[in-house]
């Protein structure tokens, strides 16, 4: 995104709308730090610039990925849906993507607030790869990898900054302790945050298969979350 300094009246109205604080006042006009801007479109959509000084420049590769991963209204080609993820557990009642004995894992980089660069995402992806995971092909983050087997990304995307990007994969439930240990270690080596989520089938008696693993690892778990209530049809039937 750009702000035309000749047109800008210096009202500062756009500044609070930037989620990563990339807009500041310089010489009495608003200015966007182009390297920090994630192309989310929030300032253009909402700041209601009185002189229409905010404008969208043409996005060319690799900057195009900033919009895909930051603007909630941009549709990702891989998933066919808006946002950065996939249908994941939301349609698990009809897809059977996550069955008993497995968990769906999503590592959401940059959330909340900070945004993330792909060199940090690659650090975690490479560390997690030792578990032999297969990154979700429909997730746009996976499409930026040059070698999904090792978690290596294409070199030209590494410096790109996005509001969030998700590493998504399925894991054998029994491998959760190893995953937690890896994430504890590698999370100390990144310059941003990630939010971690795990999806699981609920046992017929109502118990949660992941609970003992979370407790054993001494991890915090939220008292709120998402519940798929099995109203989708046709229902996926597990063997």
């Amino acid at each position: 995104m750009r702000i035309d300094s000749d047109d800008c009246s210096g009202c500062g109205q756009c500044i609070p709308y930037c989620p990563v604080g990339a807009i500041s006042m310089d010489d009495d006009v608003s200015e966007i730090d182009f390297d920090e801007c994630t192309e989310c479109g929030n300032c253009l959509r909402l700041a209601d610039c009185p002189v229409d000084a905010i404008w969208q420049q043409e996005l060319v590769w690799p900057r195009t990925i900033r919009s895909i991963f930051s603007d909630p209204l941009t549709i990702a080609e891989e998933s066919g849906i808006s946002g950065r993820g996939t249908e994941e557990m939301k349609t698990n009642d009809v897809t059977g993507r996550f069955q008993f004995g497995f968990v769906g894992v999503a590592i959401e980089f940059g959330r909340p607030i900070l945004g993330a660069r792909f060199y940090d995402i690659e650090k975690v992806a490479r560390a997690v790869s030792v578990l032999g995971v297969e990154y979700e092909k429909k997730n746009p983050t996976t499409s930026l990898m040059s070698d999904p087997g090792t978690g290596k990304f294409k070199s030209d995307v590494l410096p790109e900054k996005v509001l969030s990007a998700i590493l998504e994969f399925k894991l054998d439930l029994k491998k959760l302790p190893e995953l937690f240990a890896i994430l504890k270690k590698v999370s100390k080596k990144i310059e941003t945050v990630f939010s971690l989520d795990i999806a699981t089938r609920v046992n017929p008696d109502g118990s949660i298969p992941t609970a003992p693993f979370i407790e054993a690892a001494g991890l915090w778990v939220a008292h709120n979350g998402k519940t798929n209530v099995a109203l989708g049809r046709p229902r996926y039937l597990e063997d």
């Binding site: 009642d93 999806a199 609920v202 992941t210 991890l219 778990v221 998402k226 519940t227 798929n228 099995a230």
Partner: peptide
């Protein structure tokens, strides 16, 4: 409750 998603 078919599938849940937990935040860690």
């Amino acid at each position: 409750k078919h599938t849940i998603n937990q935040s860690l």
